[in-house]
């Protein structure tokens, strides 16, 4: 018998109560239960980073996180970053620098970058490249993603403190 649990999760600022199977992955909860298909699943074992979301402000692999672990938490996904006709500054930079091709890994890169921009100095290109190396992109060769992130670093001003 598969156990279920009731959880309360706030996703992109909207709180909801759901009954989920214990084993349901956060990635499948977001995509299947909530229909937020912007979060993509590339390997289901935490290597590729396509499924990265923010859990209480910290980037996590949603394919290695159970939905029940998000009980009481704030989850942020790519859908919360900006709108089609009002992209966030980071999304604009990705577009300007042609930092995406097929777009499958892009949501994970964006959410990783949001976390990095909040918490890391990103003072050198080496640090920037190391920081991004937990996400795989097969299309771009990553160079334009690094450029977009570097432009975001230049634009962000002084180092921001981690979100509470």
């Amino acid at each position: 018998m598969i156990e279920t649990h009731a959880i309360t999760v706030t996703v992109n600022g909207v709180a909801g109560r759901h009954t989920v199977e214990d084993r349901l992955l956060l990635s499948d909860f977001l995509r299947g239960t909530l229909g937020l298909t912007g979060t993509h699943v590339g390997c289901e074992q935490g290597v590729c980073g396509a499924c990265t979301v923010l859990l209480d402000g910290v980037s996590v692999r949603s394919c290695l996180t159970l939905a029940v672990q998000a009980d009481g938490a704030l989850v942020d996904t790519v859908e919360g970053l900006g709108e089609m006709d009002a992209l966030s500054p980071l999304q604009e930079l990705f577009r300007t620098y042609h930092a995406l091709q097929c777009g499958f890994c892009t949501p994970g890169f964006l959410m990783t970058c949001v976390d990095l921009l909040r918490t890391r100095p990103l003072a050198s290109e080496t640090e920037l490249r190391e920081a991004m190396s937990g996400n795989l992109c097969r299309c771009t060769g990553c160079t334009n993603i690094v450029r977009a992130l570097a432009a975001a670093v230049a634009a962000r001003g002084p180092l921001k403190v981690p979100a509470p």
Binding site: L36, T37, T77, V78, L81, M84, R95, G103
Partner: peptide, 8 residues
């Protein structure tokens, strides 16, 4: 890009 960047 806009649709791919916003999860749409």
């Amino acid at each position: 890009d806009p649709r791919l960047l916003t999860g749409h």
